[in-house]
């Protein structure tokens, strides 16, 4: 009986011990569970924080993309504007080049015309200008003979060797009319086979000093490579009308005064000689 009681006590002790062990285990499990719960709660909270950060970053990037796209559109617009400006500049450059060329032509023509006082040289320069700067193949320079009041050819280029140059009266035909009115005459679309005829020049430019016409330049044909008169030709015509006229007039006066001076000098020499002999 005592043995049974001792057995029972021992077993109850063992049972109690087991219960205690289980209690410890459960407490441990509960502690662990609490830890895990805390960790889970922490993890949840962290995950929530990370999500909002990503969302914020996405928002920033979206805004950046929008701003960059806006910038890109602005750049494209600016590029278009610059391209347009570039086209304008290119066009302006061509125009300035042309103007520069025209000014060079005008400068050279004017410079050459006033580079000499020799009458024949001035006539040659006028001829050179008409060939080289205007591109005329057949043309003549007529000056007004004040005694006969007729236009007489003093310089020419490109005519047949047996061509008979007429003297023209003021007011007669196109050339006479130009000499009378002082207004230039042009046919802009002159064909290559336009007849060389003093009744029908393709251009007639009056040489004027103020309102006085001292002569004309008649153009009958342009060089084969030149189709029509250009803008600079009209400026050259206008320049020739004034500068060639003054150059011709002054060189003619100079030649006349030179001749008169020689005559007077000879006369004075003769007087001096006869006085010294007498």
């Amino acid at each position: 009986m005592v043995e049974d009681q001792g057995d029972i006590f021992k077993k109850s002790q063992e049972f109690l011990e087991l219960v205690n062990q289980q209690k410890d285990f459960i407490q441990e499990v509960l502690k662990e569970n609490e830890k895990l719960r805390q960790l889970l709660a922490q993890a949840r909270s962290q995950s929530h924080d990370d999500g909002s950060l990503v969302r914020e970053e996405i928002e920033v990037l979206r805004k950046r993309i929008e701003s960059l796209e806006k910038e890109k559109r602005e750049f494209e617009l600016r590029q278009q504007q610059v391209e347009e400006e570039n086209k304008d500049f290119a066009q302006r450059y061509i125009e300035i080049e042309e103007q520069n060329n025209n000014l060079a032509n005008l400068y050279v023509a004017s410079y050459q015309l006033h580079s000499t006082l020799d009458f024949q040289e001035v006539l040659n320069i006028v001829v050179e200008i008409v060939i080289n700067l205007i591109g005329a193949e057949v043309f003549s320079l007529m000056l007004l003979d004040e005694k006969s009041n007729e236009l007489v050819v003093l310089g020419h280029e490109g005519y047949e060797s047996d061509f008979k140059f007429p003297n023209l009266r003021i007011g007669d035909g196109i050339i006479g009319d130009v000499a009378k009115t002082g207004e230039p005459y042009y046919i802009n679309q002159a064909g290559k086979n336009y007849e060389v005829d003093f009744e029908h020049p393709i251009a007639c430019i009056p040489l004027k000093i103020k309102e006085n016409v001292i002569g004309v330049i008649n153009i009958h044909r342009l060089l084969v490579q030149k189709d029509a008169f250009t803008a600079v030709d009209y400026e050259l015509f206008s320049m020739l009308a004034g500068h060639a006229a003054t150059a011709i007039f002054s060189s003619r006066l100079y030649s006349q005064s030179e001749r008169k001076l020689t005559t007077i000098q000879s006369f004075l020499d003769l007087l001096t000689t006869s006085q010294s002999q007498g």
């Binding site: 060329n101 060079a104 050279v108 023509a109 410079y111 050459q112 320069i125 050179e128 080289n132």
Partner: peptide, 12 residues
């Protein structure tokens, strides 16, 4: 041979 042309070409 033309002084006008010589000057014009020089200019260019």
């Amino acid at each position: 041979d033309s002084p006008t042309m010589r000057q014009l070409i020089s200019f260019s």
